[in-house]
Design a protein around this nucleic acid. Structure first.
Lengths: 252, 252
DNA sequence: GCATCGCATTGATCTACATCAACGCGAGTC
DNA sequence: GACTCGCGTTGATGTAGATCAATGCGATGC
């Protein structure tokens, strides 16, 4: 059924052999504490691995799921970057977020059992698919799994209002750059320099700015020595200064 | 422990006798499907009623919980209106939402086990307090309870980004008024006329506008025959026109 | 090589809304 | 009654960032 709408192929289900570095990768994933043996007995672990499918590759522009589709599964990004967005009746796009390896998407679809947004690959993407009916059955049996789901859902509520406040372009952009850095760091990636995978227009849309404004502010940040930009390559050269700008938004 | 920070008194725990119209009220609450017998056996129902406490009254300005406090419980608003908000390090307020009778608050506090915002009564408020440890134990035993929690959490993710888009003052205000109307209607209240319990400044903050702009737009809406305003009393006299303005925001 | 295309940058101008300021008005309070 | 005080309204002015327009520039195709 996932194949109906996406060009990615189902990998043969073989969670260990499928990726030489599975254990290492999963340890940094949002669901890693669940998928990895830690504390789970053999039977539980088996059941979990039964309900995970590795899906991919998706290429830039491919949909992982589409707005309006029946909700059937959560996805964890394994590799690449995913954009979530909504289109209104006139086709105006509203970017909801960018999702890094190790992060979950689809949490906002549980109720009312429809994906409320499109999930689109920004580059080459692999995901883990968690069948939700199977997952919630497992959650009922294993308190840690249930709690982990509650945690992920709860954290997403706060995240989705993080950039909803009233702030200047400088503040929002600084917060955006630091937020990405923090999230890369949390997954074990280098965080002082990374690639902005998405086009400027997507950043602008997400932050409620014009693409021109994003361009100008990045330029000024560079002139002020806060960052270095070269196309989509980014380096944060003065995090304290960025943090000072972003402190109203990133309150943790 | 709730008494440490709030002036509300614990009502004696007696869910049936405590309110002559309990069953009727609970049937319209976000957690009604859980608290009411529907499908639950006697033992389960008993356990549920053991973990619910009726708390109140809170008066305008009282805190139901405070930002930074250890998370211990979810709350359903029973009566009155609750505002949730965050303060940044310089004391700038950011209003996150307004919560009507039958709606849940505290869902964003499960992870990382701290309330991320203040919950403040806007008028006289009564709440139901659900101990979260007890509730999640019950959820593990009763699939419907677990599912209901997943649903509430998931729906809140979408809600919290509803007003985060880039829209004009007119669109946001129209969407705000209709959203309140819809939510009142969903709980069985009259929805064509209601009271804006919060001051203009709170509406403005929530919608990222200045209080003056809210005032001016409401005035113009009235002049155009879309609404009638008298202080905080509001009547929607041309819903189709409001909906036309708000359609980019309320996509459902 | 040249042409095309998508994206990014840079400059000039415009505007929706904020900000500043004054005033109104009902509810307490003395 | 007069005096706050909190809130809302209304008008005049300012500005952050949008919009419009032109140019740059690397990647792809022929």
């Amino acid at each position: 059924m996932t194949q109906l709408h996406q060009p990615g192929k189902l990998a043969p289900h073989n969670p260990i052999a499928d990726d030489g570095d599975d254990v290492h990768f999963c340890s940094t994933c949002a669901f890693g504490s669940v998928c990895l043996p830690a504390g789970l007995d053999k039977i539980a672990l088996n059941e979990l691995h039964m309900l995970v499918e590795h899906v991919g590759p998706f290429h830039a522009g491919d949909h992982i799921f589409r707005s309006g589709e029946r909700f059937g599964a959560l996805y964890a990004v394994r590799a690449g970057m995913v954009k979530t967005r909504q289109l209104d009746d006139e086709g105006h796009e509203q970017v909801l977020g960018f999702h890094l390896p190790g992060e979950m998407i689809g949490l906002d679809a549980i109720h009312p059992a429809k994906y409320p947004c499109d999930a689109i690959a920004l580059d080459t993407v692999f995901v883990c698919r968690f069948s939700f009916p199977a997952l919630s059955m497992l959650a009922a049996k294993i308190p840690d799994v249930q709690q982990r789901l509650f945690d992920l859902l709860s954290a997403d509520i706060g995240k989705s209002s993080r950039f909803s406040g009233d702030h200047t372009a400088d503040e929002r952009l600084a917060a955006f750059l630091l937020d990405l850095a923090n999230r890369y760091a949390a997954r074990g990636f280098a965080s002082n320099a990374y690639r902005l995978v998405m086009p400027r227009a997507d950043i602008a849309n997400y932050l409620r700015l014009a693409a021109e404004t994003v361009s100008r502010v990045l330029r000024r940040f560079q002139d002020q020595g806060l960052i270095r930009v070269d196309g989509r390559e980014l380096e944060l050269t003065d995090k304290p200064a960025l943090l000072k700008l972003a402190r109203h938004i990133l309150r943790d």
